[in-house]
Computed example of a mutant assay.
Amino acid sequence: MTAAIPLPVIAAVLGAALLHATWNALVKGRAGQGDPLLPTVLVVAGGALASAVLLPFLAAPQPASWPFIAASSLTQTVYYLLLIATYQHGDMSHAYPLMRGTAPLLVAVFNGILLGEHLSGAQWLAVCLICGGVLAMLLAARRPSAQQPHGQRRATLFALATACVIALYTMIDGAGVRRSGAPAAYTMWIFLLTGVAVCAWSARGRMRALAALARARPLLLPVGGVSTLGSYGIALWAMTLAPVAAIAALRETSILFATAIAALFLRERVGRGRLLAAGLIACGAITMRLA
C-alpha cells in the first residue's frame, strides 16, 4: 500500500486533526484551569454517551473485529491512566508534543515489521517531517526552570510510555477496523467501553467537581465528546484506505491547528521556534499528499 493517498482521504484526516485540536483547546482553555483531568474525563464521557446514543442505529462490526475492539478498549484505558500520571508529574506543553511526535514514528517502524505494511520513501519523508515538527514544538515550548526537575524527568518517562501505548492501540485499530466492515460502529464500541472504564476509575472522589464543571461549561461534554469521537472515527476510516503509519502521522497535524487556535483564540504568544515547527508539519502534510 504505497500508492499516493487520495486527496479526499487527506482532507478528511486534516479535518479530523482540526477536531482533535478543538477538543484539546477546550481542555486547555478556561475549562482546564485547575485540575486538567476534569475536562478530560468530561470529554471521554461525552464520547461514550454519543456512542451509546448512535450505536443502536448502526450495523454491528463483523465478529472477526471484536477481539481487536476488546484489546483496543483495554489499551486505551491504560492510555488514559498513563496520561493522568503524566500530567500529575509535568506540564501538558511538555508531555503532549512528546507523546504525539513519538507515537507515529513507532507506528511507522513496527507496523511494517508486525503487519507487513511498508511506506514509500516519500511517505517516510513525510512521516519524519511531521514527527520532527511535533517534537520541535516540544523544544520550542521548553523554558529553563529549576522547578520540579525530578517531576519533569518522570513526566518524560510517562510521556514516552504513553507514546508506546498510543502506537500499540493505533496498530491494533489499524488491523481491527479493516476486519470490522463497519468503521463507525467499531470506533463507537471502543469509545463506549473505554469511556465506561475511564469514568469508573477517574471519577472516584471527583463527582462534585465534575458536576460543577459540567454546569459551568455546558458545551464541554457534548462538543468535546463529539469532537474526539469524530476525530478518531475519521482516522480509523482513513486507515481502511491508506497505510496506517501515514494516517497516524498525518493526524498529528492537529498540533498545527492547535497552534493556530492558541494564537487566535486563546491569545497565546507564538514564537519563532513554534512557527518553524509548524512549518515543518505543514511541509510534511504537503509531502504526504505528493508522495
Rank of each mutant, 00 (worst) to 15 (best):
R154A: 15
A108E: 02
G29N: 06
A245M: 03
F110Q: 03
L37N: 10
T40D: 10
C128I: 14
I234D: 12
Q88C: 07
G133P: 04
Y80S: 04
R142G: 08
M239Y: 03
G174I: 00
L256E: 01
A4W: 14
R154E: 15
A197L: 08
H118V: 11
G284A: 07
Y87I: 09
R217N: 10
R274Q: 11
L264H: 08
M137N: 13
F191Y: 13
L26R: 00
A212M: 12
G195K: 08
G271W: 12
L241M: 10
W201N: 12
R269P: 06
A282S: 01
R215E: 15
L139M: 09
A161T: 15
V198W: 00
I281L: 12
G195E: 07
L139D: 02
M99N: 06
L105G: 11
G230Y: 04
G101M: 05
A52H: 06
L49P: 07
Q62D: 15
E117W: 02
H118E: 04
A200D: 10
R179A: 15
R217H: 14
G224F: 01
A85M: 11
A277T: 02
R143K: 10
W237R: 12
S180W: 01
P183W: 04
V223Y: 07
L213F: 06
A245D: 02
A71P: 02
P144W: 13
T75S: 06
A211R: 08
A249F: 00
G273I: 04
